[in-house]
């Protein structure tokens, strides 16, 4: 468990001086941030800028989870990685870059696939979860594990020139399943490999996601509880949408939940937990 800071060191005061003087944050908010741990699920286009700004801001501990290795085609948007870390696990490559920026942040790289077998145990060790994943089964898995473990989930996504952001399972608000009780038909799902993505669009969304994590971590609350932010990069347009409340009949967060342990998400979604091949070949 994270040690509990009650004050800031002289180095901390120097490093964070420009944000310490914000009335919205102050020393109290900065100390709070330093005592918070965040699990970043996916060190790709969203996870890189998110982890970068959380570390810069002095988050206490950062879990960096990704099963994949760095490829050249990642570098147009996955800005923590570099040409020389090609072939290395993304979780390690990201952790190295983070520690250059802020060595006082505890970085825990997990080079593994999040699964029904490890998700709860991992998520229980963190205060806030950031969903930076790139596929439907992982989004349901992260959601269910956050509900079962009682953790707020700050979720962003990006494709082509668009992005979306919501905070789930936070202060009585809805979870991902409240909005999407059934997964989309696999043939309707486009991932970044198929549909493409302009690199700076997940950059924008990952930064916005980091801001909400920091607001939650410092006790300010989030602007996106029961709200969805939509961004259209082609039109330069943001729109904020009021979402439904927590659903009484939700199978995982409702009044009589029927889903009390994690399930097989690839089977549930009919697709693999990766953005590389779209259809799961169901024999």
């Amino acid at each position: 468990p994270l040690k509990s800071n009650v004050t800031l060191s002289n180095d901390d005061i120097m490093r964070y001086s420009r944000q310490l003087i914000l009335p919205e944050l102050g020393v109290k908010g900065q100390v709070a941030i330093s005592n918070v741990s965040v699990l970043v699920v996916g060190c790709g286009g969203l996870g890189c800028p998110l982890a970068q700004y959380l570390a810069a801001a002095g988050i206490g501990r950062l879990g960096l989870l990704d099963y994949d290795v760095v490829e050249l085609s990642n570098l147009h948007r996955q800005v923590l990685h570099s040409e020389v870390t090609q072939g290395q696990p993304k979780a390690l490559s990201a952790a190295q870059a983070i520690s250059r920026l802020n060595s006082t942040v505890q970085c825990v790289p997990y080079h593994l696939q999040l699964s029904r077998d490890n998700a709860i145990q991992l998520i229980q060790q963190y205060d806030i979860v950031a969903d930076c994943s790139d596929n439907v089964p992982t989004r349901y898995l992260v959601n269910d594990a956050c509900v079962l473990a009682g953790k707020p989930l700050v979720s962003a996504s990006a494709l082509r020139m668009e992005g979306q952001l919501t905070v789930y399972n936070y202060r009585g608000g809805p979870c991902y399943r409240c909005l999407f009780p059934s997964p989309p038909p696999p043939e309707t799902v486009t991932n970044c490999s198929d549909g493409g993505v302009l690199g700076v669009v997940p950059g924008i969304m990952g930064c916005l996601q980091a801001l909400e994590v920091l607001k939650i971590a410092s006790g300010q609350g989030s602007s996106f509880e029961q709200q969805l932010l939509m961004f259209d990069g082609q039109e330069g347009r943001f729109r904020s949408i009021r979402l439904r409340a927590r659903q009484i009949e939700c199978v995982v967060c409702g009044e009589k939940p029927t889903l009390t342990e994690l399930q097989d998400y690839e089977q549930f979604c009919g697709s693999a937990a990766t953005d590389k091949c779209r259809r799961l070949n169901l024999l």
Partner: peptide, 29 residues
């Protein structure tokens, strides 16, 4: 600009000049 669940979903009675948005959720990252 509100989730249709808040408005009655399929039963919502449309008003002149209503704005109705259909947005595919994104899963990429």
């Amino acid at each position: 600009d509100a989730d249709w669940e808040l408005m009655g979903e399929l039963e919502y009675q449309l008003q002149d000049q209503d704005n109705v948005v259909f947005i595919s959720t994104l899963h990429g990252g």
